[in-house]
Simulated assay, not measured.
Amino acid sequence: MTAEHEHIPPWYKQFWPWFLIGLLGSSVAFSLVYLTLSIRYFDGTVAQDYYKEGLAINERIAKQEQASALGLAATLRADPATGDIVVDLNGEPYPEQLVLKLIFPTESARDRTLTLEHVRAGRYVTMLEEPLRYRWYLHLQPEEGPEAAWRLTGEARFPTEDEIALLPGI
């Protein structure tokens, strides 16, 4: 009886080694792509004292209850051509300035703080270098920072010619 000697091709001519190398190579390639995307579109870290920030919600609620007790409300108009922002404040008192915080929902680097000057009974005005675009959360306060007595909030998508209501609320 003669034993037939089976011919085995070298490893680089077989399917399975290349399949396994392909799996490993694709996982390395996808990892590098995701690493690049996560570095390029970094969305910030969780606050170090998140517990204190969570407790600050009571202060925000108190500010908005104060605005409601004072009967405050405002309307905001933004001129899409010139970038002028006009706020009409309903209710008393009328501070000399108002602070409008424009908060971009996804990128904190785009957040802006504007100071509006009082021009006459309840009307406040400021100008922007360029008109606003996209969606923003709006916070209107009599002064900047956590020591403000009241706050009105709203949400808007710019450009718009409509009036935006700023009301007491979270």
Rank of each mutant, 00 (worst) to 15 (best):
A73K: 14
A74R: 04
A78I: 03
G44A: 03
A67T: 10
L116E: 00
G145F: 01
P142T: 06
Y41P: 00
T36K: 10
A165V: 13
I57E: 09
Y137D: 09
E129K: 12
E117N: 06
F104G: 02
A78H: 15
L20E: 09
L128A: 02
R123L: 00
A121I: 02
G169R: 11
V33L: 15
P10F: 01
E107A: 12
P17L: 05
Y41D: 10
P105M: 07
Y51N: 04
L132N: 07
G145C: 03
L23C: 14
P142A: 05
L140G: 05
R77C: 01
E92G: 08
V86M: 07
G154A: 11
L55H: 09
I8S: 05
V86E: 10
L70T: 00
T113A: 09
P95A: 00
T126Y: 03
S108R: 15
G83W: 02
V119E: 01
A81K: 15
L138A: 05
Y134R: 14
A29C: 11
Q48Y: 13
H5G: 03
T82N: 02
E107S: 11
F158E: 03
K63T: 00
A29E: 06
P17G: 05
T106Y: 12
G44V: 01
A148S: 11
W18D: 11
L132I: 04
Y34A: 13
H5N: 12
Y134I: 07
I164C: 08
M127A: 15
H118M: 01
H139D: 12
G83Y: 05
N90L: 12
E163I: 05
E53T: 11
Y137C: 00
V125R: 06
G122R: 06
G83I: 02
R151T: 03
G22Y: 08
P93D: 08
A56H: 07
G83K: 06
T115E: 09
R40W: 11
L24M: 14
I57P: 01
A47I: 09
S26G: 07
E117C: 00
L116S: 03
Q141K: 14
